[in-house]
Design a protein around this nucleic acid. Structure first.
Lengths: 211, 211
DNA sequence: AAGAATTTTAATCAGTTGTTTAAATTTTTT
DNA sequence: AAAAAATTTAAACAACTGATTAAAATTCTT
């Protein structure tokens, strides 16, 4: 099981994983058959087990990647040495772009976590992606200085994520309801995103006194 | 196939549907087997087909109910002859209570709609639950009077629903992350709900001039 | 180029799935 | 109470699923 892949030639292992990612994201673990994946990858169904041993193992591999993608914004941006307001704006914009590129990411991750909640701790703790202590301190300091409303870090996360992620969870419903094309939806989502940024920052950041 | 049920005796059909609701909500259509449902209902697996003809038909029956439950708040409250602010507050509170009672409702409905987006139009249009014209006019009037920010009805719905529903979509993740009990989570969610009501109304409703 | 190691394939297996059948049981009608 | 209708059951079916096997094809090593 060694890598034979020469330059710029995509390996069979990667082809299988790409196919698996595509099918799993669309149909979920339970709705996906190993034959679906093999067909999508354009190869024999036994090859999947040759490289990944089982459907479970292949799924776990894909799921880990998707969980990291899901939390990439929090990881990279909330740990940055920038102001709170910058963090809020950057994170919402980052998640928006990620979800435009991967519209079913949220549904996939949250649904699979609903099926097997243990998976979260297993993968996430292993990467311990957000430095909670740092962010919690920043929230406390800003609140002490009267820059923001006092807010628990527990409430901070969903406040940032809910509005954007929910939009893409309802994507098909929204498009059907308002007869939107793909482009229509992205425009609508972008407008909504800007509205949300304004609403959240207006709420969170208090007007500063000018001495 | 007539109803034999006497007083206060739950019919077999209802027992099957209750069992199906429980299992489908937890595992989804793909993750559920007919034998799961039969076992949960405590009866033979062939009886399910005697009453509902197929897994699909039974699922459709459950799904319709859940879609109605999902949109009950919008249906009942947004059509009421009350002020916009009252509608916002009532709707968020209503959805919160519904989700405390049915924590996996959102995940179930959105995930099944993601699997088969056509289902939405089929069931929802048949009930045409929200009088869009009425609400749209109310939004326009309030905006013309300077009571609220100008807002498209398309943006109004997700603004009301996203924060509460997302909270329950992340329930297992949140509880695991912050080591919460069931009661802890409900307290947390309630606090978050109040915060969201404040944020949304603060954003939506403009301060009125006193003459 | 020959042999060894790796990769890919077709065929198959054992278990599960949704559904059906035919018989047994219960309820309703006469 | 007997006959008819409705309900419930155990058993089985055919299709599908994840996985394995053993052989074929390819690549690597010498």
């Amino acid at each position: 099981m060694s890598k034979k892949m020469s330059n710029s030639q995509i390996s069979t292992e990667d082809r299988i994983k790409e196919a698996a990612k595509k099918v799993f994201l669309e149909k979920g673990f339970d709705g996906t058959t190993t034959r679906d994946i093999a067909k999508q990858a354009g190869l024999n169904c036994a090859l999947m087990n040759y490289y990944f041993r089982s459907k479970q193992k292949l799924f776990s591999s894909v799921f880990e990647d998707m969980l990291i993608l899901f939390f990439q914004g929090m990881t990279n941006i909330l740990n940055k040495p920038i102001s709170l307001k910058e963090k809020v704006v950057e994170l919402v914009n980052h998640d928006f772009r990620t979800l435009v590129e991967n519209p079913s990411l949220t549904n996939f991750v949250l649904n699979e976590l609903h099926r097997e909640p243990e998976r979260f701790g297993q993968t996430f703790n292993a990467h311990k992606m957000v430095n909670e202590a740092l962010l919690a301190r920043q929230l406390e300091e800003a609140s002490a200085k009267g820059e923001i409303r006092p807010i628990d870090i527990k409430n901070f996360f969903p406040l940032l994520m809910a509005n954007i992620h929910f939009l893409f969870l309802c994507k098909s419903m929204t498009m059907e309801t308002w007869n939107m094309t793909e482009a229509d939806f992205v425009r609508f989502a972008e407008k909504h995103k800007d509205m949300v940024i304004e609403m959240v920052t207006d709420y969170l950041f208090l007007p500063q006194e000018v001495p």
